[in-house]
Write a protein that binds this DNA or RNA. Sequence first.
DNA 1: GAGCACTGC
Length: 872
Amino acid sequence: MGEIRTGRFKRRRRDFEDDLAEQSNVQFHEEVDTSSTEQKEPLKAELDDPTELRLGNRIRLENDVPRANFEDLRRISRQEYLSKREERQVLLLQAELQDFEWEIEQIGWDRLTTKEQQEYKFKKEIFSTIQERWEIEQDMETHYMLPDDYFTEDGKIDKKRKQDTLHSKYNDTAVVDWEADQMRKAVKADTRVPEKEYEFVFDSSQAVEFVSDPVDVERERLEELIAEEEERIKTIDETRKSLPVYQYRDELIKAVQEHQVLIVVGETGSGKTTQLPQYLHEAGFTKDGKKIGCTQPRRVAAMSVATRVADEIGTAVGDKVGYTIRFEDRTSERTILKYMTDGMLLREFLTDPELLSYSAIMIDEAHERTLSTDVLLGLLKDIVAYRPDFKLLISSATMNAQKFSDFFDGAPIFNIPGRRYPVDIFYTSQPEANCLHAAITTVFQIHLQQDPGDILVFLTGQDEIESMADNLAETCLKLGDQIPELVICPIYANLPSDQQRLIFEPTPEGARKVVLATNIAETSLTIDGIVYVVDTGFVKENVFNPSTGMESLEVKPCSKASADQRAGRAGRLGPGKCYRLYTKWAYLNELAANPTPEILRSSLASVVLLLLSLGITDLLNFDFIDKPAPDTLIKALELIYALGGLNENGELTKVGRRMAEFPTEPMMAKTLLTSSELHCCQAVLSVVAMLQEAGSIFYRPRERKEQADKARQQFVQTLGGDHLTLLDVWTKFVENGHSVQWCRDNYVQYKSLLRVRSIREQLERMCERMGLLDNETDLEHDRLVVGVMKSVVAGFFVNAAQLSKTGDAYRTMKKNQAVWIHPSSVLFGLKPPPKLLIYNELVLTSKEFMRTCIPVHEKWLREYAPHYYSDK
DNA sequence: GAGCACTGC
């Protein structure tokens, strides 16, 4: 019986092949008649014209293979970018599978021979792998991120090159490579099989032979792989069930069904972030075509959580599970679980103010109280009120749960225990006068007296980290062989990434690693192997003063929540110890419970503009979980009004709506909008993008200050101030092909310039869409400089300062406040000093400094801000 | 002649 079946398979198969061959011929002839004579041309024409291909396939297949699944074939055919060759093989494979299925229907699965069953499974597996890959590739077409070098010299996207690259893999050889690669992976461990033989799957003539081949190494391998995959799925399932959150699954689902808002308190390791959205999905919250969204305060978190959940569900990232972060959208119309940064959800309000595409939202890590989370909470409270079908989950640490519950009118709090190892906490018996010194001593005490395990020290900033590193190194050098080796690893956000990577290197045998970190190690990154934490108990916090518009970075005692978070870093993989360099009394009585929420210490210009554009005008009564000072809101409104974003009636103007669209501060947006009128949008785009990273462009290591300063000199544009100096850095970076080496040679931070490029790209796309690039003309250098300066004036006139009569300081135009040029500015110490300048930001350190300045003419202020400076 | 904690759009 088996023989007969095989025979028929072969026959049917051949028929099918003939059909396909005939069809290609028809296509070929048609093309010869109309156009080129080259053999390759018709295929190319086919690829260019998807309708041609679709039509051709459908007609032939419908007529001749009545049992074929036409919907699927059509869908496959629609993938017009696939090469003819690959497609043909797949169609053959599918036809074979259909024959099999027909057979199974007739006689039943159990009556197939083992070999036939295996063959069917094997082919099915391959077929679904291909389908999966196509789907992924289709995604790539839409969401493909441009690699570094797909830009033409003038900074535009090199479309041809991009397309070439996207399609290059469909060249004949590339396809073979992919196949070979897939198969090579499948038979990785076995070298006995010559490579040629396992190309059979896509080579019809050999495939038949293979089927009847009694010694079948590859298939065994593949089955092993399938078994492994099954095992993996089982393991995933077991892991999911072993999470603390699992035993509350049904209760949680019930709670969500009964209450619209639920506060979930889940400690680290409870599995809430990955599991809760899945539970909602399993409970049917995605049935009506709506999504479940989950926000994260950080980009990496959104990416990695989405990846893990996709793995658990068994889909590709971007399919059922996806994520959206700035510069990268890995979602599709099939996505039902969407992870994203909180800022991204906030932006979504601009296009979908009622979040109608979501049935539920989970705000994760709400206790961190980022600016975006706080604004979201206010907006979501509204949605909850007028969309009874909408569910909201707030996940928080224990400390803030009650506050969230109160904010949402007594929403129930659901507790999920975490899974963490115990951490012994030690306090000093009396306050330490010099905490840096105390930290060094503590490190050596641990090093000499305690069991193996790495140490993590929390310090306030780069300065402290560097001097402690020096001190530790010096002491180690003095002690020499008397103590075991101590590996010192500094880590802070501004450290170049190659040096950052050092903290992840495994500690050598017999040595101990000591990581000196800012609070980057509190939430943003986790380091394995940490057993001891030394906590100095301080943080640097940025505070914004609305009345002066001045920022200052202040060293403050950290909060209890931070201290606990820091201690927790010792108990990730096993029991740990935390040494706090302050007294228990201080912990209990002097530390605030939580850090000051960002919304209470930032400029709110962007937030206010966003709320205005959502139609929320009564800002003073907007339901913030912590209301910002009215003064801060009023200052923001005044600024938006001065920029022309609001009219006398308090309504948003066209300019205001456009400014709101830009993912920048309103002043930056206004600068961009004006640059279009001055025909210099491209240059201003570069300046604005550079300004976002202005603080971290130049790299100035302590030991090579002179070289770094010298390298910086080549960019200095005294007359154009810091803005045009930054523009020059950008231009040269582009001229040098975005080279890492060039950055190293010139003491410029590559990482920052990469970010600048992404930002610039995004802003350029927006400018293009708004038609701001239509006015662009080639300006000669001097006129370009004036254009840039005037654009800056139009956006930043509020930040004008003029030289005081004595000539030693500046006075802000509006408030007559004494300010100084920051020593890092190219205008610092210039003779004669510019009479009038505009600063990008005002910072209070040892003095009131203007950071990033540009000299301007007084008449430009009259031209662009007559309403603001009318009396002068 | 100073000193930039950390995120995010």
